[in-house]
Design a protein around this nucleic acid. Structure first.
Lengths: 207, 207
DNA sequence: GTCTATATAGGGATAGAC
DNA sequence: GTCTATCCCTATATAGAC
């Protein structure tokens, strides 16, 4: 079946960005060839340069888009008014869900940032990411009220994110050493949502 | 200062592998150019092909070396006869120490494996990595003895590894969003060793 | 806006002298 | 074993017709 017409009614510029996104996310900057993007968008290679002057510019568009989509979502899930244990459950479930809809993005961002750490600083100075004040205050207050044990909010936040993201970023490694077949991984992450939530709350809750 | 002679007395083959390791670890397969390796090894490009027929072969050497160095160390630290809480402390501290001596390797392995998941399967079938039986049995027994809460050993192991590795793999991201200057990161990881140990033991310990 | 053709450079690999 | 020179292909980018 050929679904050319389905895509063709969106304009070329959008199709290019879509293909670029798809391929850059999987193969990274160096691994991606302009020809491959052109083919995927069913368009001529020259068109890429017509719309986005260079490979760098096209990559920049894809990268900012990913970062802009990614960081605010963490903040939104962690920096709200839910009570602390509910918030943690909600974060773990919600965050894993969100990431699983675009499972390549975290690895893409991390890997490209290791190549070129300046990229993020440039991005952050433009976009101004604010610190998670509500979360920080909430953790300090919960400790004062003896609901949780004294905890550095930033270390806790890093723990939560590590537990959610690492299994997705390192998926191929984990599939291999834990011998999980590819088609069982989603199910594994479903189970993991509950495990991680329990693990975190267990650790900080005062009993 | 020129330290050519210091390195020159080791033979070319070793120097090449050393440079290849260094550059592949940082830039990955696609990002690495043979010329750059040659320059770094202060040797001619043709020599690379003389010793290691192709870029693929050279990469293969570097990758297996990294994997062979990396996976057994996890096993050695987690699958021994220490008592459970001591083992966890020992693992977190020892593992972070080991990884920090080669901080690029985890990201290198993860990222290359996302590009080509077959690589690890090939490697594992050769090298035969055994499962961490001692650890698994220990966790089951500790739960039976009510020393820890009932815990899936594999989920626990994944939790521990996530907490240790993610902050190293995602270092540039974390430095930026937590605003940690580059020269403070080692200190941050020192603090983190204790935090993570506490966090894990707190979570599973029966009080 | 879209295509073909082509310029230009870079990168992997080899031939062949020493 | 080590070097220079070179082959050949691929990749980014542009020129110019339509």
């Amino acid at each position: 079946m050929d679904n050319s017409d389905v895509s063709d009614d969106r304009n070329a510029e959008k199709r290019i960005l879509e293909s670029a996104r798809h391929i850059f996310h999987i193969k990274g900057f160096e691994g991606t060839k302009m020809q491959e993007i052109a083919d995927d968008a069913r368009i001529n290679k020259a068109m890429l340069h017509y719309y986005y002057r260079s490979k760098d510019k096209l990559f920049e568009a894809v990268f900012s888009e990913a970062a802009m989509d990614f960081f605010p979502k963490v903040l939104q899930l962690i920096d709200n008014d839910l009570p602390v244990f509910e918030k943690i459950k909600n974060f773990v479930h919600g965050y894993i869900d969100v990431v699983l809809t675009n499972p390549c993005i975290p690895g893409f961002i991390i890997s490209e940032l290791n190549q070129n750490p300046e990229r993020l600083k440039k991005f952050f100075s433009k976009k101004q990411i604010r610190p998670p004040d509500k979360f920080v205050n909430q953790i300090i207050k919960a400790a004062r009220d003896k609901k949780i044990v004294p905890t550095d909010p930033m270390q806790l936040m890093l723990n939560i994110i590590s537990l959610c993201l690492f299994p997705i970023v390192a998926r191929p490694v984990i599939e291999t050493i834990f011998n999980i077949p590819d088609n069982k991984y989603l199910r594994f992450m479903e189970v993991r949502k509950k495990e991680v939530t329990k693990f975190i709350i267990n650790s900080i809750k005062v009993k």
